[in-house]
Simulated assay, not measured.
Amino acid sequence: MASYATAEPQFIEVNGTRFAYLRFGSAANNTVPLVFLQHFRGTFDHWDPQLIDPISTTREVILLDNSGVGKTNGTVPGTYAEWADNVAQVVKALGISQIDLLGFSMGGFAAQMAALNYPTLIRKLILAGTGPSAGEGIEGGDPAAFGRLAAASNDKEEHGGFLEAFYSLTPTKQTLGDKWWKRMTTARSNRSDYVGLEGTKAQIDAVLRWSNREHASEGSYDRLHEIKVPVLVANGDNDILIPTVNSWVMFKRLTNADAHLHLYPDVGHGFLNEYAGQFSSLVNQFLDDRA
């Protein structure tokens, strides 16, 4: 059976865009695949194998590059509703009637919109290190940390930017970050680079719209009560990119969902890498729960 390291990219054309994805894992006991949506500038080559592989041993997984990202051509959409449209159309083109969906960080913005705009497509939803669109109680992240991620243009800058933004700055935590970086950057061959300058600008523009109440109708904050599927909200207790309080606000606004909130101690945005073993187990437990 293929693993994250050995899965070969596959492609499917939808509405003129050639979408790239990885599809692997075991579908023996779980017929609903889990689709993963990645963070700012990241591609399907930027996941942690220690997170992905324990999940793929129990279910089929699909790691998708949205338009303008990684090995997918086209341009980055201007709204997360459009990102969600792409996800739904790719899933439909693959002949899949229902999915579980995990969105990390910016991928979590798109995952919320997929659950809102395609409610019959999503069986269960996992929102990791993310938050709702603009609204009361929502806090902005550290602009300096976000700026370093946006401006990073070589391996050294990317390494420094992501470790500073995803991990606490203590020597112990930065050492854990180094271990994650090595796992992530050596897991796969022929890896895509982080999203380039033009795509990064488009992603930033989408974030600015998401974070502006003038565009509330395009976002999730006022609609979270519409989600009625089980939802797992997870984060570190000290996320500086998408502040942890936003996960709490999102959890409280999921009033009609069977919502769960899990915060990991002494960790930030990179909790799903630092606690990869624990979080992968939690994901499997949440998805397997028939209650």
Rank of each mutant, 00 (worst) to 15 (best):
A134Y: 03
L121T: 03
L121P: 09
L102Q: 08
V90M: 05
Q112K: 04
A202R: 14
L176Y: 12
D142V: 00
Y221D: 09
G107I: 06
A152S: 13
A206Y: 04
A144T: 09
E157R: 05
L125A: 08
G196H: 10
L176P: 00
G199N: 12
A114T: 15
R148P: 05
N212H: 06
V195C: 13
A134R: 11
G135W: 06
R148V: 08
Q174T: 02
W210S: 04
T186F: 10
L224N: 03
V207M: 13
G147T: 04
I126Y: 03
H215W: 14
T185H: 08
E226G: 00
S105L: 07
A110D: 08
R209D: 06
A88E: 11
P132N: 06
T120P: 00
N212K: 01
P119Q: 13
W210Q: 12
Y118H: 14
G177R: 04
L149C: 05
G219N: 04
A216K: 13
T120D: 15
M106T: 11
E157P: 02
V87I: 14
I204A: 07
G103D: 10
S153F: 14
V195D: 08
G147V: 02
P119T: 10
P143M: 00
G160N: 15
G196V: 07
A165C: 02
I96Y: 02
V207L: 14
F162D: 00
A206S: 15
I204F: 09
G160K: 08
D205E: 13
S211H: 09
S192F: 14
F104N: 12
N154E: 09
H225Y: 11
G147L: 02
T200L: 02
R191L: 03
A151W: 07
S211N: 14
G219A: 05
N86Q: 15
Y118F: 14
K182W: 10
N212F: 07
Y167R: 05
V195E: 13
G103N: 10
L208V: 13
M184F: 00
T186V: 04
S211V: 00
W180A: 08
A151S: 14
G108I: 04
A206R: 01
N212I: 01
N117P: 09
T120K: 14
S217I: 09
R191C: 03
G137M: 09
K179Y: 11
E157G: 05
A151F: 08
K182Q: 15
F146L: 12
H225C: 01
T172I: 11
I126D: 07
R148Q: 13
F146N: 07
A151K: 15
K201I: 12
D205R: 03
P132G: 03
F162C: 01
I138Y: 02
K173H: 11
R213Q: 14
I138A: 05
R123S: 12
L101K: 09
E158I: 15
L224E: 05
K173D: 12
L116M: 10
K156D: 15
L116P: 10
L224Q: 02
G129E: 00
A110T: 12
E226Q: 15
P171W: 02
A93Y: 08
